[in-house]
């Protein structure tokens, strides 16, 4: 097998291997870039209820039981907190209740991690640390190989020595333009 054939075989097989990792980083990259417009980590739902709260003693087991019954929540309260004088928070196992006594209003907030996107974002941001970091480095080295080996996939003027070479130049020009324009 010549070096040319070996390079093509390696490029193909490493390319196959990199599909999964590339999708992980590409999908989570878009998700994280736009996290201020769309929370890709969690789905937060809030439902507002009108409940008589004014002049009631909120810090009693009796009130808490009544409230859970009224809201049809089969859950237990694990923590309580007054963030300010107008808001009382009750933390349940699966949701959080915001009580506004002066407005006789209760908001039930539920936070659900988004399926797969939360995990992909966690991997992208290296929350797993250690082994994942080394695996990501390995993947980066494979990407470098894929980039460089692609230059030698086709010989002669049908390859990068021909008009397609402009594509390579364009790929370098785009980041160079950003560096220049934003004075990075």
């Amino acid at each position: 097998m010549s070096w040319f054939q070996l390079n093509r075989s390696l490029h193909r097989d490493i390319g196959y291997f990199c599909i999964g990792m590339t999708l992980v980083f590409a999908i989570s990259g878009i998700a994280l870039n736009h996290i201020h417009q769309f929370n890709s980590n969690y789905q937060v739902s809030r439902i507002t209820h009108s409940v008589q709260l004014e002049n009631l003693d909120l810090e009693t087991p009796y009130f808490e039981n009544q409230l859970l019954q009224k809201l049809a929540l089969d859950d237990t309260i694990k923590a309580r907190f007054w963030p300010d004088q107008t808001t009382y928070k009750l933390f349940l196992q699966t949701s959080t209740l915001y009580l506004y006594p002066s407005q006789n209003k209760v908001i039930v907030e539920q936070v659900e991690p988004r399926f797969l996107l939360r995990q992909l974002n966690a991997l992208h941001l290296n929350e797993a640390r250690a082994a994942w970091m080394w695996f990501s480095d390995f993947y980066a080295i494979l990407l470098i190989y894929l980039a460089l080996s692609s230059l030698f996939m086709i010989k002669g003027k049908r390859g990068v020595l021909g008009p397609r070479g402009w594509l390579v130049i364009a790929g370098f020009a785009a980041p160079a333009a950003f560096i220049y324009v934003y004075s990075l």
Partner: peptide
């Protein structure tokens, strides 16, 4: 890849 994803979940 699926195993890696699951492993990473456990590590968090």
């Amino acid at each position: 890849m699926a195993c890696v994803l699951m492993f990473s979940q456990l590590a968090i």
